[in-house]
């Protein structure tokens, strides 16, 4: 018991930090989702009213639709692109080039994330943007557009932000998976006459299923809760045509001081992310068996 006392003392700081800055806000969010709360003195119980309000909230409905489409697009893009890049890099005969390509594709991570958004805001700039200037350069001047200013194009424009950049973490995870496939497997496949595509579908994809699943889950979790892209590029506009739930949560709390409603949106997002993760794990486990 004397020894245990020292162990508890060693854990005191981290446990205290987590209780105060993680557990307390998490439970506060659950609790306050049942209250009207301005973050200060105004605080009274309304039961499930916020959740009912969400059902009829048009902004929220648009936000959900946007998020689902955006997630679908980004998950495909941020899994397929890194997979193919990694597949090609692993397949290079030249070890030196293989090494350099890894470094080249990890390199963009030195640029602060927000700079990428700011640079893409410049790319879509209607007056002097790279995209419009490029269109003019190749004689497609009539297609220039206020990409972020038009409700019809804004979500597409946002979905393509940073294209075709390889998300570092997902890229490295899939690369790591492909690198662990033993050389012998590929050699015996080659002896059996399997070409690139057969090898891809019968060996490489099945053998990296775990990494692919992890990359997909990570993309989904990141994209559901991160809204800095939307905040920096459009702030949900024009109107609320590029709204997503996390941004609506942010605006409810910090623009309209509706901390209760913001907490309720947070709870719904939390449950959705939990469900997505569980489903994804189930599906991938089922596919392996």
């Amino acid at each position: 018991m004397w020894r245990a006392k020292w162990l508890y003392l060693a854990l005191l700081i981290p446990v205290a930090l987590l209780l105060i800055f993680e557990w307390l806000p998490a439970f506060s969010a659950l609790y306050n989702s049942l209250y009207i709360w301005n973050g200060g003195k105004v605080h009274f119980y309304v039961g499930l009213e916020h959740y009912e309000r969400m059902l009829s909230d048009r902004t929220f409905r648009v936000a959900i639709t946007n998020l689902v489409g955006f997630l679908f697009f980004r998950v495909v893009m941020q899994t397929v692109l890194p997979f193919f890049a990694a597949e090609m890099i692993v397949n290079l005969r030249s070890q030196r080039w293989s090494y350099w390509w890894k470094i080249i594709f990890v390199f963009p991570m030195v640029v602060p994330t927000i700079l990428n958004y700011l640079i893409w805001r410049f790319i879509y700039n209607p007056q002097v943007g790279l995209l419009n200037e490029g269109l003019k350069l190749v004689g497609l001047g009539e297609y220039t557009h206020a990409w972020l200013g038009d409700p019809l194009t804004v979500m597409w424009a946002l979905a393509f932000v940073r294209f075709p950049w390889l998300p570092t973490l997902q890229f490295l995870i899939i690369l790591g998976g492909l690198q662990t496939i033993p050389k012998e497997v590929h050699e015996s496949a080659a002896i059996d006459g399997a070409g690139f595509w057969r090898r891809l579908f019968y060996i490489d994809i099945p053998m990296t299923r775990r990494q692919i699943t992890l990359a997909m889950i990570l993309t989904m979790i990141f994209m559901t809760q991160r809204f800095d892209l939307f905040l920096v590029m459009t702030d949900g506009g024009p109107g609320y045509s590029s709204m997503v739930p996390a941004l609506q949560l942010f605006q409810s709390a910090f623009n309209f001081l509706e901390f209760g409603y913001a907490s309720a949106i947070g709870v719904v997002l939390f449950v959705a992310m939990l469900a997505l993760t569980v489903i994804n794990l189930r599906v991938s486990a089922g596919a392996t068996n």
Binding site: F21, A29, Q225, A253, M273
Partner: peptide, 28 residues
């Protein structure tokens, strides 16, 4: 004693997204 409980107190937080805790944490 309570090692498992304490450790669960750490790792279950992996599933709690930052966006859920953002507003109450700001108030705190």
């Amino acid at each position: 004693p309570f090692k498992t409980v304490l450790f669960l107190g750490f790792i279950t937080l992996i599933m709690v997204p930052g966006v859920l805790t953002l507003a109450p944490r700001f108030v705190l």
